[in-house]
């Protein structure tokens, strides 16, 4: 698979179809891939594709990162299903020039969440890790443990129905058959069943950990405003300190801004240094939007995001009769 990817990228460079390829390379730590930017054929050897490639690379096509991407530059980008959905979103929102993009799809069976691995081994330090089909082995000083991969998959991968990019120019290997998960939001449903006080308590506990580093926002492909509302100071919407109501409103505000646009890649959650289940709120919104408007973000290049469109006769049970 990796070999095919490298060959393909090499070919793209040789045929002058790309000037830059954004992909994953080996990171400096075990279980860690890192985004790499390559601009010549021989560097294709640095590319990898495995269950550690958790970053959503679409993010590098927007934000400050636009500076990386020069006009008329042909860019190749390696994408999992969710990253590919971000590209669809960008196309819908006119953030990219599709013709300048070579989308290289890879079949994804889910990426791991390093934090889950560390919890599994009680915070011990992993010095090396290896992967097999459904298991991983981690080793450190004085221990060697096997972990079932499903136990350490990123939350976003657990109920994923979109393992392949919806739109691509080249696909490496065979597109992965979707598992056709029917019940996509069991976690949300379980949380909804708790009483209001328990839900609030959970939220306060979770978000009290937030240090307002904005890693979630900055790795989020759907968050690409040139100036984020938290950064505005006249008016200042949100206090800058991690006071709980400011923190919650920051997150809710962000969730609402990506409502109908979130592709549930889970990049926010994996980036969070405070280990908050950030995707929980996004998934609640996605569930509402799926149920009410039968819409899923980032699948159809011709469909506007749910909150940028409407139907005249739709359910309005939440409005006073």
């Amino acid at each position: 698979m990796v070999k095919a990817l490298r060959e393909e990228v090499k070919r793209l460079f040789e045929e002058k179809k790309v000037d830059l390829v954004i992909g994953w390379g080996k990171g400096s730590l075990p279980m860690t891939a890192t985004p790499i930017f390559i601009n010549k054929a021989e560097d294709a050897e640095r590319l990898i594709w495995d269950e550690t490639c958790s970053n959503n690379l679409a993010v590098y096509l927007t934000k400050d990162k636009r500076q990386l991407v020069k006009t008329d530059q042909k860019i190749g980008i390696v994408v999992k299903g969710c990253d590919g959905r971000s590209l669809v979103l960008y196309a819908v929102e006119n953030q990219i020039q599709r013709e300048n993009l070579v989308i290289i799809g890879v079949p994804c069976a889910g990426v791991i969440d390093k934090k889950k691995v560390l919890k599994h081994i009680e915070g011990k330090e992993v010095l090396s890790a290896s992967f097999e089909a459904d298991r991983m082995t981690v080793e450190g000083r004085g221990f060697k443990t096997e972990i079932a991969k499903c136990d350490v998959l990123s939350d976003s991968c657990l109920n994923c129905n979109h393992p392949n990019a919806p739109v691509f120019d080249v696909f490496i290997g065979e597109p992965r058959k979707s598992d056709s998960v029917e019940d996509v939001y069991p976690d949300v449903e379980a949380f909804e069943k708790l009483d209001s006080e328990a839900r609030w308590k959970t939220m306060v506990e979770a978000y009290s950990k937030c240090i307002r580093c904005y890693a979630c926002r900055n790795v989020c492909p759907s968050c690409y405003c040139t100036e984020c509302f938290v950064d505005q100071n006249d008016p200042q919407w949100i206090g800058k300190s991690p006071e709980i109501t400011d923190t919650l409103i920051f997150h809710l505000g962000r969730n609402l801004h990506v409502a109908g646009r979130c592709v549930e890649c889970g990049a926010c959650e994996r980036a969070c240094p405070a280990d908050i289940d950030l995707l929980k709120l996004n998934r609640k919104i996605s569930k509402e939007i799926l149920e009410r408007f039968n819409f899923t973000a980032g699948l159809d290049i011709n469909e506007k995001p749910a909150l940028a469109s409407f139907c005249e006769n739709e359910k309005q049970d939440f409005i006073m009769g």
């Binding site: 790499i36 930017f37 400050d64 990162k65 307002r212 580093c213 890693a215 926002r217 900055n218 980036a271």
Partner: peptide, 16 residues
């Protein structure tokens, strides 16, 4: 340019 390319400019490194 090269070393900063992948940085997403969050403050996780600084706050930690």
């Amino acid at each position: 340019d090269e070393v900063s390319a992948k940085c997403v400019n969050c403050s996780a490194c600084a706050f930690i």
